[in-house]
Design a protein around this nucleic acid. Structure first.
Length: 493
RNA sequence: GGGCCGUUAGCUCAUCUGGCAGAGCACCUGACUUUUAAUCAGGUGGUGGCAGGUUCGAGUCCUGCACGGCCUACCA
């Protein structure tokens, strides 16, 4: 790593000193603007529409993005969050002190400017600056103005540069905020309440991912970062809340790739007296409503494919979908041994360690998932794949569960929740036995079972991967494009 | 974990088979009072990711490492 002295250019430091020598604070604490760039342009348009001749004075603030100097007059592009406005600085139209300051400015500096709004010969809305204030001196050069910043590593490690340089990226994260906002509105409008449950907890349950582990010093006890919010939200159903949801970060100590970040955002919702059919309706309605409100259409494009999100979405059983796309009806091969040899017969490489449920999951992710571009619900999963879901009446090996897919990605997972505490214990134990074969530590969450023993109403539960939803809506194929600061390895010396 | 590709100025990129490391933007100096990728003239800026090796000579060839991307595997 270079030292501060090496990293900062001598030229910029010299300018900073020059500015200080003029008695100017290069980092003043506050500044009042009267208009944003957008408002200034709108104001000018309004003036012209009403044929008003007198010029209006505005004060704006923002970052200098370009400086076109013509000698006695210069044109600056000033950018704020609303957009860009041109400033004109004329040597004869500004105080000498301000002009001296102007000469020490660089692209990247934040400035405030006051002046009359007019249009140049080439019709560009412009502020004729009569007063200039430095708001923050920049000591580092910005990325190139024409090609911008494209080095993916710098884009992620120094996201602020990415945001400065790439309008599309700014759009993506505004849209992300908008999506989350609309999710809240949608659920609040249906009478759900938003809750917050612990991130740190002695058990990591509700899914089977590897957890992060940390330590509480005062309690002298290890705690896990949650891998799901499910078990706490169910405790709230037991407590008498009938519609709850949580939007929040969960953490899984696993691989990082284009669709996995160690921390990611999920929505989980639980609705008493609803079943998975009703949750399905809610999901298709929620996603299409979101698209309509955030994008203005339910017809989106993802990875070069047009996707129509308008309900109703297709519903097809997992068994049917896998049979259709892989030619293997897993019901005909009811144990790992049989399914494995059938898969081998089809020329599929099979990990001999995997149990039956894993093999079914393999068939799903290999043959089916990539084909599910249009939104679809796969319904009725094998019980062994879903320890928290209620069995379907009359079909002992199947649970009332669905996963929603779009753009070839899983975007939601839901079931009619298992509320029989004795069966839940059995299913946990069954799962623990299977895990132990694979050397995975697993404990039964006794605290949750105790809660369940007090009675949980029948309910429909839902989990939505918010990051993937944002990927879908913003046509991004990497999760890192929708997470502001994605996890990266530490950069070496 | 495996495979392929990448890493050269602050940024975007060149640098044919090994032979003095370049351009554009940014920055500096000068000219220019309506430019907008301003223009024109001149200039500063490099441990070529890191560490070794081969060679008279390495950005270029070889080995190892780091980081990143894609693919693949793993991870419900």
């Amino acid at each position: 790593m270079s030292t501060r002295g090496e990293r900062i250019s001598e030229q910029r430091l010299q300018k900073l000193n020059n500015i200080r020598a003029m008695g100017i604070d290069p980092y003043p604490p506050r500044f009042k603007r009267t208009h944003t760039a957008r408002q200034t342009i709108d104001l000018l348009g309004q003036q012209e529409k009403e044929s008003k001749s007198e010029q209006v004075t505005v004060t704006v603030a923002g970052r200098v993005m370009a400086n076109r100097s013509m000698g006695k007059v210069s044109f600056l592009d000033l950018r704020d969050e609303s957009g860009k406005i041109q400033l004109m600085v004329g040597k004869d139209r500004i105080k000498e002190a301000d002009f001296n300051l102007f000469k020490e400015l660089d692209i990247g500096d934040f400035i405030g400017a006051t002046g009359k709004v007019f249009r140049t010969r080439s019709k560009e809305p412009t502020i004729e600056v009569n007063s200039l204030t430095l708001l923050a001196k920049s000591l580092q050069a910005l990325p190139e103005k024409w090609h911008g910043l494209s080095d993916v590593e710098i884009r992620y490690r120094q996201r602020y540069l990415d945001l400065i340089s790439n309008e599309e990226v700014r759009k993506t994260f505004r849209l992300r905020s908008n999506i989350i906002n609309n999710v809240r509105q949608f659920l609040d409008g249906r009478g759900f309440i938003e809750v917050e449950t612990p991130i740190l907890w002695p058990d990591a349950g509700g899914a089977t991912a590897k957890p992060f582990i940390t330590h509480h010093n005062a309690l002298d006890r290890d705690l896990y970062l949650r891998i799901a919010t499910e078990l706490h939200l169910k405790r709230l159903l037991i407590g008498g809340f009938e519609k709850v949801y949580e939007l929040g970060r969960i953490f899984r100590n696993e691989g990082i790739d284009a669709t996995h970040n160690p921390e990611f955002t999920t929505l989980e919702s639980y609705e008493a007296y609803a079943d998975y059919n009703e949750v399905m309706k809610m999901v298709e309605e929620m996603v299409s409503t979101l698209a309509q409100q955030v994008l203005g259409t339910t017809a989106i494009e993802f990875a070069g494919t047009k996707i129509e999100l308008k309900p109703p979405w297709q519903r097809i059983s997992l068994r049917e979908a896998i049979t259709q796309h892989s030619g293997i009806d897993f019901v005909q091969y009811p144990n790992a041994e049989m399914l494995r040899s059938k898969m081998r017969e089809k020329g599929i490489e099979v990990d001999p360690q995997k149990n039956w449920a894993h093999l079914v999951d393999d068939l799903l992710s290999t043959f089916v998932e990539p084909k599910l571009l249009q939104p679809v619900f796969l319904v009725d999963y094998p019980a062994s794949l879903s320890p928290l879901a209620k069995r379907k009446p009359g079909e002992a090996r199947v649970v009332e569960r669905f996963e929603a897919f779009a753009g070839g990605m899983e975007i939601a997972n839901a079931f009619t929740e298992l509320n029989d505490p004795l069966e839940q214990r059995e299913r946990f134990l069954q799962q623990a036995r299977e895990r132990q074969q694979h050397d995975v530590e697993e404990t039964v969450d006794e605290d949750f079972l105790l809660a369940l023993e007090h009675g949980m109403p029948p309910a429909g539960g839902l989990g939505v991967g918010i990051d993937r939803l944002v990927m879908l809506f913003t046509n991004n194929q990497s999760i890192r494009e929708v997470i502001l600061f994605p996890q990266l390895k530490e950069k070496g010396e």
